[in-house]
Nucleic acid binder design. Sequence first.
DNA 1: TTACAATTGAAAATCAATTTCAATAAGGAA
DNA 2: TTCCTTATTGAAATTGATTTTCAATTGTAA
Lengths: 155, 155
Amino acid sequence: MPRRDGCGPPWFSGQLRGCGRRLTAARELILDVMSRKEGHFSVEEVYAAVRKQYPRVGLVTVYRTLTLLVEMGLLACHEFGDGRARYEMIRGSKSEDHHHHLVCTSCNRVVDYRDFIDDEVQLLKKTEAALSKRFRFKINDHVIEFYGLCEKCQK
Amino acid sequence: MPRRDGCGPPWFSGQLRGCGRRLTAARELILDVMSRKEGHFSVEEVYAAVRKQYPRVGLVTVYRTLTLLVEMGLLACHEFGDGRARYEMIRGSKSEDHHHHLVCTSCNRVVDYRDFIDDEVQLLKKTEAALSKRFRFKINDHVIEFYGLCEKCQK
DNA sequence: TTACAATTGAAAATCAATTTCAATAAGGAA
DNA sequence: TTCCTTATTGAAATTGATTTTCAATTGTAA
């Protein structure tokens, strides 16, 4: 696949080289697609979007690139229980972008929410401390998800 | 596989018949195994335990029976991110047995905790109400999980 | 006991994701 | 620019978990 410079952010090439990696058209394109889209996407969905611009990209490359972008801290990967991973752009720093999820169990739509989590996060800190002590775990992360039916799927 | 009456609870047969199902040795046995074990188990683990008593049981039947027991509300099924489902006995009523999880990302051990969730549940109720209103979701369930390293895996 | 339908096990199929490997392309050096 | 090394790629094969198919078996109501 031929290179196509300039569709991605300028720091991307540097960040790749910084860890001994190379800038390729596939990587630029996939990052570009992900950064334009708002929401959570399966590998197949990303693959379809990328293929519209470059039909030569293989599914395997999409898998590999998404994994790479997660390692680089640019994407987050979630599993909402339907057996396929979803990828989401992290906007801003990881901690700034922290949010929780609301998942429709019928249509699999996922809504991020950031507005109501201040109290949650504060309580989680306390809970984390208590759990850490009690079970001697070093806690690194948490997941809060609500499951239900979205407006459309209630009808 | 021959029947083997009496190893399961007496209400089990009735609950099955109540929804047009039959009591079989495999079903009694799998329920029995699950009710004796404390914790979360993969299909393979249940399969191994069941096979110790009845080597003729097939893996497919274990899959089918675990799914059935979840439908009947006797087991809960969780996915902790390693790509294989875990099944857990529900003891008492579903709401009485409510708990959250602490997952070791290294050895996949899962700890249930019930002691610290009173505050959590109260906050979740509030959050649920706010989210319901804002996003017009009918919320049925939630997941709270902490991820980290257990004592052994920190070393 | 009989008859019918649910259940079973083995094999095959499916589905997401990973690995293999030869061909290609990125990017530093000359 | 051209060359060279090595990372990256795509296609095909592979894996691992789970599901489906189907003929044989077994539960249960009559």
